[in-house]
């Protein structure tokens, strides 16, 4: 698995008069993982949705392996695991995954779904409706959905929210595996410890601007840098 190269160049995104992102640039080499941090309303989720090609910037360019993020060729390489699960509650986990596989034109959807259910340790609940899932199970199913087409770039929006300790641990292991497989990772999170553990580089946003970038920081130095940067911005 070769990761994807991500290039964002002076991205600006406005919602009416509110500026969500203000001339933000970022660069991610193939196989690298990046943690995006910042207080609420800093523009983290907006950035992730721009990277996923779900929204377009008002100004600036964003490219995944040289193709604009909203192009079909880029969408094929992106796995987006949003704050919401993107799953249909009335369908079973298996049906949801088969549907997602068909959306991406995966050759054998049923086979792929079975394999992902096993990876996500959802084998026992595979044929139950997602509506009855616990937060942890729904999150695992959502991650399986995001990986259905074996994406080179995985985008995660606050994946640890609402998970208990053991579910968090499992997710951490899962994400470490994705990283080891050589995928590029962009992780939006509040958990500095998880960020330090999973990411090669960090990007701290405040009010839509970059206030800190770092590389290879441990949890303590990341926290110091984070607090200082956010305080300066406020």
């Amino acid at each position: 698995m070769n990761g994807a190269r991500v290039t964002g160049c002076s991205l600006t995104k406005r919602f009416g008069h509110a500026v969500a992102l203000d001339q933000l640039s970022l660069e991610l080499a193939p196989g690298e993982s990046l943690a995006v941090l910042g207080p609420n309303g800093a523009g983290k989720s907006t950035l992730l949705r721009l990277l996923a090609g779900l929204a377009r910037p008002n100004a600036g360019t964003i490219e995944i392996d040289g193709a604009p993020a909203h192009r079909r060729s880029a969408r094929r390489r992106i796995g987006y695991i949003g704050h919401a699960t993107l799953l249909y509650p009335a369908l079973t986990a298996r049906e949801n995954l088969v549907f997602a596989a068909r959306l991406y034109g995966v050759p054998d959807p049923a086979e792929r779904a079975a394999q992902l259910l096993e990876d996500a340790e959802l084998g026992a609940a595979a044929d139950e409706q997602v509506a009855g899932f616990s937060r942890g199970m729904a999150q695992r199913a959502a991650i399986a959905r995001g990986l259905v087409h074996d994406p080179a770039l995985v985008l995660l929006d606050e994946p640890f929210t609402g998970l208990d300790r053991s579910a968090s641990e499992r997710l951490l292991v899962r994400l470490a595996t994705l990283r080891r497989e050589g995928r590029s990772l962009v992780l939006v999170t509040h958990e500095l410890a998880h960020a330090a553990q999973l990411a090669d580089a960090s990007l701290v946003l405040a009010k839509g601007r970059t206030v800190h970038t770092g590389r290879g920081e441990d949890a303590a130095s990341l926290e110091d840098a984070y607090l200082a940067a956010v305080e300066r911005a406020a």
Binding site: R49, A52, G53, L54, R72, S73, R75, R76, I78, Y80, G82, H83, A84, T85, L86, L87, Y88, P89, A100, L103, Y104, G105, R145, H149
Partner: peptide, 14 residues
Amino acid sequence: ENDALSGLALAPAE
């Protein structure tokens, strides 16, 4: 519900 519309928008199809 669950932002499934984004899931459709992500599909790499016309």
